[in-house]
Every structure is written in C-alpha cells, then in structure tokens.
Write a protein that binds this DNA or RNA. Structure first.
Lengths: 132, 132
DNA sequence: CGGCATCCGCCAAGATACTG
DNA sequence: CAGTATCTTGGCGGATGCCG
C-alpha cells in the first residue's frame, strides 16, 4: 500500500536563467549611471543646450565632470553635439531620437522625487539628528 | 548726446533658483543610487523575497553589499523586513506601498535597457575593439 | 540561513589651473 | 566660451572569514 508515494516534488522546472533581471537594468545603468547624466538630459530637453548654461544649471558639479558625462552621452548617441566654429566658440547639445525615448523615464524619476521629497528629507534629517 | 544709452540690458529676470532640476532627480538618486537597488526592488516585486534567493538572483554581487543596500531601502521604507525567529533563521522582504510606487519606473528602465541592448552593446564592443 | 567585521582597490568625481 | 591636463580624494563595492 501506498506504493506510490510521490517523493517531495521539486518544482518541475528550476529557473536556469536567474531571470533576465540584470540585463535591462544593467544596460540602462550603463547610460544613466553617472551622477549628473539624468540632470543633463533633462536640462537639454528643456532647451538648455549650451555647456555654460548647463554648468550654470548644475553648479554643484564642475565643467570637467559635466564634459565627461556629456561626452559619454554623446558616445551612446543620446545627444548630439553641434559645434559652431566661431569666436568665441559656441556649442549646442540636442537630444537624439534615441535620447528622447529616455525622457519619460527621467520625467517620472523627477516627479517621483518631487512627490517624495518631504518624506525622504525627514528620514535623512532624523538620521543625522541621531548623531548628537 | 546719446544721453540715453540703455545700458546693456540684463535679462529682466535672472532665474534665482537654477530650476528645480536637481531636486527631484537627486531625491530619486538618493533612493535608487546603489548599484543593485533597482535589481533588488524588481526581484522582490517578483516574489523573490529571501536574502539567499536574492543573492542567487544577483550572484555578481555579495551578501554584504546586498545586505547594505537592502538596509538602505528599508531605512527609506521602500521595503519591509519580516523576521521569523526560528532556526535556521528566515527573513522575507516585501515592498511597501511607497516602494510599489517605484515599480513602474523600474519596469520601464528594465524595458528600455532590453530594447536598447543590441545598440548599446555594439557601441561598447567597437570601443574596446578600437584598442587593438 | 542570515548577518557582521575587516581589509582593500579602484575609479568617479571634485578642485585647480591653463590653453585656444 | 569651450575644453583639457594634473592631482587628489572619498566612499562604494568587492573579497573573505567568523558567529549565532
């Protein structure tokens, strides 16, 4: 009797591939994974196109770093660089088609941050306050 | 003569606040700004709740780092930690209401990365190939 | 299984100054 | 105005091992 005791059944199929979790996110991180890249993209999309303007917009950073990150965004063809050969030099950045596909994500990140700012700030404040 | 030479007019209104650019994005970066946080959130939302599972899911990282980032996500109340006091110990993470509000952003980041992977990879490959 | 302590290397990002 | 060169740093994340 009970000749057919089903051994503690394992799940029929072990997921081989740990889910394509990393993939997509890793790719996106490759593009947006610079401290100021999201800000740069958002600013450019708002018509702030020139390096000096961008630096004024993000004074917390430096020309150098902004340049680096702009160059990377350009390398991945998220933005295009237009150089006016004149004196003084003039440069403009513009979103590419591909870069525009990022905008709704960036806008949502921005909105989310705005909505949650009070909450997040309160946590940060309490954290430092605890160090008294 | 020329008594009324209007001095080089400045723009009527200088933007005092460099646009609330940083704000929203900076807040969001405060939350998602860890190498594995997006992956962790996404995984948890998919029902991968236990530390060991999560580590299996993201074997590129280490227990330590994952723990750190989980702790931060918990601190900001994006996830909740449920501890079962038993032996061997058991722990489960779950998204909070607030954490769930991040999911559509994360899913979009994931999708975007998937869609653009071929393109991005090709650029990365050509880059390293250029070093021959 | 889950968590923490220790040690360490690296690199992104800041500071500064100079050129065209 | 735009861009680059040089130097420095902080801290994040990786590697390992021990403990309850």
């Amino acid at each position: 009797m009970h000749t057919f005791v089903p051994k503690t059944k394992k799940k029929m199929y072990e997921k081989k591939i740990p889910l394509p979790l990393e993939c997509g996110l890793a790719m996106t991180r490759e593009i947006l994974g610079g401290k100021w890249k999201p800000n740069l993209l958002l600013a450019i999309s708002l018509g702030i196109n020139r390096p000096s303007q961008l630096h004024r917009e993000i004074p917390q950073s430096t020309k150098r770093v902004l340049n680096l990150q702009l160059k990377e965004l350009e390398e991945f063809e998220m933005i295009e660089k237009k150089i006016y050969h004149q004196l003084p030099p003039k440069v403009e950045y513009h979103l590419t088609k591909r870069g525009e596909t990022l905008m709704h994500i960036l806008r949502q990140m921005n909105e989310w941050g705005d909505k949650n700012r009070p909450f997040i700030k309160s946590i940060i404040l309490n954290r430092t306050k605890a160090l008294d």
